[in-house]
Simulated scan of single mutants.
Amino acid sequence: MPLNLSHTAPTLIIRKSAFERAGLTRAQFDEALNLTPDEFRVEGELIAVGPLVGEDTATDLIAQLEESGLAYFDDFFELSGNWPEWLRLFAMDARTPGSAS
Rank of each mutant, 00 (worst) to 15 (best):
E55F: 05
A9N: 06
E45Y: 02
T96L: 09
F90A: 12
P2S: 10
A9W: 01
D38G: 07
E78P: 08
R88G: 05
G81H: 03
E55I: 08
R88D: 11
D56R: 14
A91L: 00
L61Y: 08
D74A: 15
L33Y: 04
L46E: 08
H7P: 03
S99L: 07
I62R: 13
L65Q: 10
L65Y: 05
L61A: 11
R41G: 08
L46Q: 00
E20P: 01
T8H: 08
D74L: 08
W83C: 05
V42A: 02
L35Y: 00
N82Q: 15
L65E: 07
E43H: 07
T36P: 00
I14V: 14
R88F: 12
G50T: 03
L35S: 01
E55H: 09
F76S: 10
L24D: 05
L89H: 12
L5M: 04
G69S: 07
A22R: 02
F29R: 09
P51Y: 01
D74R: 08
P2H: 10
W83N: 02
V42N: 06
A18W: 00
F90N: 03
R26K: 11
Q64G: 14
I13F: 01
A91P: 00
R21H: 06
M1Y: 06
F73G: 14
L61P: 06
H7G: 03
L79S: 09
E39H: 06
T59N: 10
A100S: 13
E66P: 07
A91F: 05
L52A: 05
R88L: 06
F90M: 10
D74W: 03
R15K: 15
G69H: 00
W86T: 15
R21Q: 08
L3E: 06
E78S: 13
S101V: 06
D56V: 03
V53G: 12
G44P: 03
A94E: 12
T25H: 00
F76E: 09
D30R: 11
A22P: 02
E66Q: 13
F73I: 15
T36Y: 06
A71L: 11
V53N: 14
R41Q: 11
L24G: 04
T96G: 02
P84C: 13
A58E: 00
M1L: 09
D93L: 03
F76R: 02
A63N: 08
L12T: 07
S99V: 10
T59P: 01
D93S: 14
F76G: 07
F19Y: 09
R95D: 15
G50W: 00
L35C: 01
R95S: 13
N4P: 05
P51V: 00
P97D: 09
E45M: 02
S17I: 06
G54K: 11
G69W: 03
L12F: 04
M1A: 15
M1C: 13
F73S: 15
L24I: 03
E78A: 12
